[in-house]
């Protein structure tokens, strides 16, 4: 049985993720300080990438959950993939909130404001923390997978609804970062380059983490199965000896 989660795929992904992340950080640090936000504008190399990766994580969780629920494609691998992706998504969302808060301090003057997108991210974090808590409830694998899949699909329905509610409630956040790619925007080319590199780096970091986490989950499942079989064999041997 395999005991490692490393392979040539993870080595290549890890190398690409490390290089692109390092390049994004270096490019971010060499950006000129902006007039309005000063040194904090360098966070454009990291923050939008983290936010993008968190949406990607939860998208993969939803698709994997749908694949598990669909009888023709039902397989344990989809449940493992959904759980692995959600775990990484929660980390990325927490980092998005943390970097957004650091960025918001000089812009808005406070660490936290009840802005639509901040509130939505916080609600999304809470939703997926609940999803992970549901996954950790000691249930048989089939029941855990079924309930988790339903919860993940429901979360995908709830996120847009939360978005509408908080968007109508209040909006202070600057325009979408991706809107800066539209022609006619006033963002400097270097900032756009740093942001795009950050998006690529976070996607690669996510992919690298996902493969490792998926393989850990598979090893855990194999271990659980094996320990049960070993315990059963040991019990059978005891019974034979006693006779």
């Amino acid at each position: 049985m395999r005991t490692s989660t490393s392979s040539s795929l993870t080595l290549s992904l890890g190398l690409a993720a490390g290089l692109s992340l390092g390049a994004a950080v270096v490019l971010g640090l060499t950006l000129p300080a902006s007039v309005e936000q000063g040194e904090y504008s360098r966070l454009i190399a990291i923050h939008p990438g983290l936010a993008w990766a968190s949406y990607l994580c939860f998208g993969v969780t939803a698709l994997s959950s749908a694949a598990w629920l669909w009888p023709r494609t039902r397989a344990p691998r989809w449940d493992r993939l959904a759980g692995a992706s959600a775990e990484i998504g929660v980390v990325f969302t927490a980092l998005t909130l943390a970097t957004g808060s650091i960025w918001g301090r000089p812009t808005w003057g406070v660490w936290w404001v009840w802005d639509a997108r901040l509130t939505l991210s916080a609600l999304m974090l809470a939703l997926y923390l609940g999803y992970l808590a549901l996954r950790r409830v000691p249930n048989p694998p089939e029941i855990r997978a079924r309930r988790s899949a339903v919860a993940a699909l429901l979360a995908v329905v709830v996120v847009p609804l939360n978005h509408f509610a908080v968007d109508w409630w209040r909006t202070l956040h600057q325009g979408r970062s991706f809107a800066q790619l539209d022609p006619g925007n006033d963002l400097d080319g270097a900032f756009i380059g740093a942001m795009l590199l950050g998006l690529l780096a976070m996607t690669l970091v996510y992919s690298w983490l996902l493969v490792h986490r998926y393989r850990v989950a598979r090893l855990e499942d194999e271990r659980d199965e094996r320990s049960f079989e070993e315990a059963l064999d040991a019990r059978r041997r005891e019974t034979v000896v006693a006779r």
């Binding site: 609600l123 809470a126 609940g130 808590a133 409830v137 249930n139 509610a165």
Partner: peptide, 29 residues
């Protein structure tokens, strides 16, 4: 979703409250 588990009492609010946040916002407004 939360039924039948020993942690149902703590799990249910964690699952339900973020999901019904838009209901709270809209009904209050």
């Amino acid at each position: 979703l939360a039924s039948g588990s020993r942690v149902q009492e703590t799990l249910l609010p964690l699952l339900l409250l973020p999901a019904v946040a838009p209901v709270l916002i809209a009904a209050t407004r």
